[in-house]
Design a protein around this nucleic acid. Sequence first.
RNA 1: GUCCCCGUCGUCUAGCCCGGCCUAGGACACCGCCCUUUCACGGCGAUAACACGGGUUCAAAUCCCGUCGGGGACGCCA
Length: 490
Amino acid sequence: MPDPSAAKTPRVRFAPSPTGYLHVGGARTFIFNWLYARHNHGTLVLRLDDTDLERNTEASVQSIFSGLRWLGLSWDEEYKQSERLALHRRQAEAIFAKGLAYRDFTPAHADSGEHSSSQGAWLFNPGMRELSLEESDRRAASGEPFALRYRVPRGQGRTLRFTDAVYGEQSKLADEVEDFALLRSDSMPTYHLASCVDDADLRITHIIRGQDHLTNTFKHLALFEALGVQPPQFAHVPLLVAPDGAKLSKRRHGPVVSVTTYRDAGFLPQAFVNFLCLLGWSPKDDREFLTLDELTAAFTLEAVNRANAVVNFTEDDPFDPKAVWLNAEHIRALAVDELSPRLQPFFAAAGLHPSPEELLAVTPLIRERIKLLRDAVSAADFFFLPQLAPYDPAELIPQKGDAALAIRVLQTALEVLATTSFDHDSLDHALRQAAQSLGLKAGQMFQPIRVAVCGRKNAPPLFETMAVLGRDLCLARIRQAEASLQSLVS
RNA sequence: GUCCCCGUCGUCUAGCCCGGCCUAGGACACCGCCCUUUCACGGCGAUAACACGGGUUCAAAUCCCGUCGGGGACGCCA
């Protein structure tokens, strides 16, 4: 029998609930959905699952949208569950009318505790499932609040089954599924109801979501049946877990799981996407660096793993080293004129405002030296600082030398630089010759100049740096350095 | 507790479905060497894993059973 969903072009959905910022696990689920949709020329639906009035916030909605926009992956349709309440309620009533659900008048929150701990799983509230329709109607009419529960077909030896695209054949006895709620006592739909009703109504063909929903799927199977529709295909993806093995959570792990943390630290979205894809999925060859196009071409659900993946962050280092490495790779893969403008906001945040031209000149000197975009500031601030940050004059002293030697180097440099043209080759030639005439190794000559000009020992290549800085600034800084050395000798 | 899922280097993974080519491959991180005006890039190299126990087989990381370990679900949260 042909699979009805296989013929249609796929429709997938990402359905975050706006109860907090977009976190890395959610981002990855979104990316997998996006990749699946694009790979198969299907449609990606973004649906805000905002049926929990208590916990939803507008700030979360904004945070999710800005996170998604930053990723740069677009969706095709957009819905909000809160605008579809009428449909949810209508379907709940239809299910009730078919006798597949019942009213539960047990007060909310009255039953916590006693079943979870000792006597096994909770299945239903005593008395409510068997309430006669007459009494149920009477109590409802009298205004007594109730939740609507799905009447799981228990006691018939039924087995609920589905084939997960990632986890394979799944089955569970219906007797082990609890009577989950469809409507709350305030008549708001629950997640299960709203989700299934919308998935059916939006004609979703493939549900790609976190593995934490694997067991919920049995409830959804029953619900789709109650709704009278074929269930979509399911594909559960392994969870992203913290180094301690627990599933990533905003509450326990804090801002390190927020995508804005990555964005603000200077991850490139394409690197972030690349990294996330490699957690729980691989192209099955040795590629690690993949562009979006390559990811799209290579992505299949069959290649998704089943084991949870650890995001390797620590207290003092919030980012997985592999994510950082991939980011550095993507930075290096960027053309200078693409990279340069992306650096600008990070300088601005540090109070530095180089012109686009200045930044463009500096970018090639630091491109291979930064792992995160924000590193650009510490790597290149000296280009744009009118006054160098104070440093220890002892740094100016070269290997196997003393302050007097450093002074001699700088004085010689001052003379030579006064007449040398400030391009790489001229500087290289002039300074090497100067070193020779002083009887010094090149490094002994260059190091004091580097520190004088950059204010520190580790910096981009000297001649390119000086060429960008220009003669005036270089001479001024070298003079200043020489003066600071005088205090050391006297 | 009940049910579901998972278990290859520290981490991400290839290999597992279709046993032999696996003295288990790649990557990150770490360490060492080379390149080099510093840093970085790049190159080379080293350390490092089939959770355990049975079984099937001429042969098991690969198939079967069990044990242990980890995770998830069990909410009028999603």
